[in-house]
Simulated scan of single mutants.
Amino acid sequence: MPPPSAARTGALPLAGAVAGGGALALESVVNGRLGEHAGPVAAAAWSNTLSLGVAAAAACVLSGLRPAFTALLAALRSRALRPWHCLGGVAGGSMVLTQALTAAALGPASYTLALVSGQTLCGVAMDHLGLGPGAPRRATARRLAGGLLAVCAVALPVLATRDADRTLALAVLPFLAGCALSWQMAVNGRVDEAAGKHPYPAVLLSFAAGTALMAAAVAALAVFSRLDRPRPGPPWHYTGGLLGCVVVLTAVLTVRRIGVLAAGLGMITGQVLGALALDALTGEAASHQAPAAAGAALLIGAAVLAAPSGTRPGPLAPEAADGPLGRRGN
C-alpha cells in the first residue's frame, strides 16, 4: 500500500484532470453553439486564435521563458525531441473543428461519449509505447481493466439512444478526435519535459499549430467554396478559446505526473460529469441521462484503476524500450 504522501501526490493531478475534462465538456458546447451561427470552420478558427492570443499575452507576465525555449531548441538540435512532437496543436485544432461540426447535433453527452472512447482506446497505446514523457508505462492488467471498463462505460449510453444509427454515424469524427487528443497529450508532455517542465512552450506551440491549421482551412474554404456569413450570437459563444487554454494547460501539467492514460481517464470522467450537467441545463431527455449517469460512475472506477498508485511503473525491458516507437529519440 503506498504511503499517504504518495497517494496525495497522485490524487491532486487526477483531480486536476477531472476539472480539465469539465472545462472540455463546456468548450464543446460553446464551440458547437458558435458553429451554428458562425459556421464550423470560422468558429474553430476563432477559438484557436483566441487561445493563441491568450497564450502569447501570458509571455508578458511569466518568468523562466528564455531557459525553457533554450532547452527546447537544444532538445530539437540533439534529436532527443523531433519536430513532429511540436505539432500537437494540429490534433487540438481538429478536435475544435469537430466540436463546431457535430457537438450541437449530437448534444453534450453523446459528443463527449464519442470523444472519450477514442481517448481511452488510444491512451493505453500512448503510455505503453512511451510516446508521452518519462519511461513507458506498461499496459498492466490493472490498466487494461481500467481501459476496458471505460469502453463499457461509453457503450451504455450510446446503445440506449433512440436513434443509435444516426448517433454512431455522427460520432465518427469526435471518436477520431479523441484518438488525436490522446496523441496531443503525449507529444505536448514530451515538449513540456524537453523545456525543463515549463508548460508554456508546449501550450504556445499547441495553439500556434492549431491556429495555422484553421487558417489554412479558412483560406481553402474561401478559395474553393464560400465562407458562411456569421449571424449574431450571445457573447458567451465566443469564449471557447479561453476554455481551450484551461484544457491544454491542465493536460500538460497532469500528463507529466500520472501518464497519458490516467490523465486521459481523469479528463474523461470530468467530461462525462460535465456533459451530464450540461444535458440537464440544455433540456436533454431524462431517459437519456440515466444510462449516461451509469456510464459516468463506471468511468470514475476506470480512472481509479488506471491511475498510478503513487510510484511510476518500472521501465520496459531494454529490448522493448528501444523499439521503433519506444526509443526516446523518436
Rank of each mutant, 00 (worst) to 15 (best):
G35K: 02
A100P: 01
G92C: 04
A55G: 05
A59Q: 05
W84Y: 11
L34A: 14
G53V: 12
R79W: 15
A104L: 05
A68M: 01
T49D: 08
A68F: 02
G89Y: 10
L34M: 12
V41L: 07
R82G: 06
L76F: 01
G35L: 05
L50C: 13
V41A: 06
V96H: 09
L87D: 09
E36F: 01
L87G: 09
A43S: 14
G39C: 10
G93R: 06
L81R: 05
C86Y: 09
G92W: 07
S47D: 15
T98A: 12
L65C: 06
G39A: 08
R82Q: 14
P83T: 04
V41M: 10
R79K: 13
S78W: 09
H85F: 12
T98F: 14
L101V: 15
T70Y: 09
L62D: 05
A43D: 08
L97D: 00
W84R: 08
Q99V: 06
F69I: 00
H85I: 02
G88C: 02
S51I: 10
S94N: 13
P67W: 11
L87T: 10
G64H: 05
S94K: 00
A74I: 00
A103G: 02
A80W: 04
P83N: 04
A103W: 00
V61T: 11
A80C: 00
H85S: 13
R77V: 05
G53M: 10
V61F: 15
M95L: 13
A75D: 06
L97Y: 05
C60S: 15
F69K: 00
R77P: 00
M95P: 02
P67S: 01
C86F: 10
G92P: 09
C86R: 04
S63T: 14
L87H: 06
P67I: 01
A45F: 12
C60L: 15
A103S: 09
C60E: 08
W46E: 13
A100W: 03
T49Q: 08
V54K: 11
L52G: 04
L72V: 00
T49S: 14
R79V: 15
G88E: 05
A80D: 11
R77S: 13
P83V: 01
G93I: 05
G88S: 04
R66W: 08
C86A: 14
A44C: 06
M95E: 07
A57P: 00
A43C: 10
A91F: 09
A45L: 10
E36W: 08
L81N: 02
Q99L: 09
S63V: 14
S63H: 15
V41T: 11
S51R: 06
S51Q: 13
L76K: 02
S94M: 13
A55P: 04
L87C: 13
A58Y: 04
L101S: 12
A103R: 02
G39H: 07
T70V: 10
G64S: 06
V96T: 15
G39N: 07
F69E: 09
A42I: 13
M95Q: 11
V54C: 13
A103T: 03
